[in-house]
Write a protein that binds this DNA or RNA. Structure first.
Lengths: 141, 141
DNA sequence: GTGCGTGCAAAATCTTTGCATACGC
DNA sequence: GCGTATGCAAAGATTTTGCACGCAC
């Protein structure tokens, strides 16, 4: 049985390689809600004895975002981070310290409702809502 | 009459320099809603015969964000971008079509409250909250 | 076999930092 | 004058790219 990743790739004349599979597997293993930088993805794969070059990680991450498997976050911690785009987990939100980059996650039913209302008012089909709250953490004040 | 920028700086043992004033002036001139990268800020200032080094721009942008005068956008490509954080307008949020990129803005009092609560629960000093709602717009369905 | 994908290393970006000097306070 | 801020250049961090080879199809 071909994976959704394989199907999507072939539809586009592309190929399923072990590297691409491993990157997506990693995100599925850690689950949605955890985000990794390119460097961290590389570290995880190297640890599990998989040799994937950093250049390939970058190429693969961009590809998986374009294909809708991953979601690209841009928090203020230097470097972009990626996470699995999951449809069966509630959206989660981020509280980020603008000074040190410390990040806390939280959930909010209200935010989901606001997002739903906003989408409906313009006739959009809602996919996800993410709230970014920025401030200064206690240690940095 | 001292500017708000000057007051804030002095409160913290910091100094109002021509460079800091010029960077903030630039954002106030173009108005909130227009965003610039560090490189672009540098370009504008050099054009207007002001010699400010790129290193100082980076230092100043981070400072102005920490002080709450600017807002760091999480847009996709390229480096980070900044825009004036206007205090007489509430934070505005974005409804984005994942397919065509069409973007609508909206405001929400509830989101501000949720952000405030989240910041308080971790002891953060709140600077801003932005909600991103992603979906598919009517034209793309 | 064809041509897309990978690895490698170099290059291109983007951002930060050390240190001497300048200047706001 | 004291101590913060700047400019410069160099270093650091992050991401992209050219090219030859390997492998999915």
């Amino acid at each position: 049985m071909p994976s959704p990743l394989e199907l999507e790739l072939h539809q586009d004349g592309r190929r399923l390689t072990p590297q691409r599979q491993k990157v997506l597997d990693l995100f599925q293993t850690i689950g949605s809600g955890n985000h990794l930088s390119a460097e961290e993805v590389h570290g995880h794969l190297v640890q599990s004895k998989s040799k994937v070059s950093l250049a390939t990680i970058y190429r693969t991450l961009r590809l998986l975002v374009r294909m809708g498997f991953l979601h690209e976050l841009e928090l203020n911690e230097g470097g972009h981070r990626f996470e699995l785009l999951s449809h069966d987990h509630p959206d989660h939100h981020h509280l980020v310290c603008l000074n040190c980059g410390r990040t806390e996650e939280f959930e909010s039913e209200e935010v989901v409702l606001v997002g739903k209302k906003a989408a409906e008012s313009e006739g959009f089909k809602l996919i996800e809502s993410t709230l970014n709250v920025r401030g200064i953490c206690p240690d940095c004040m």
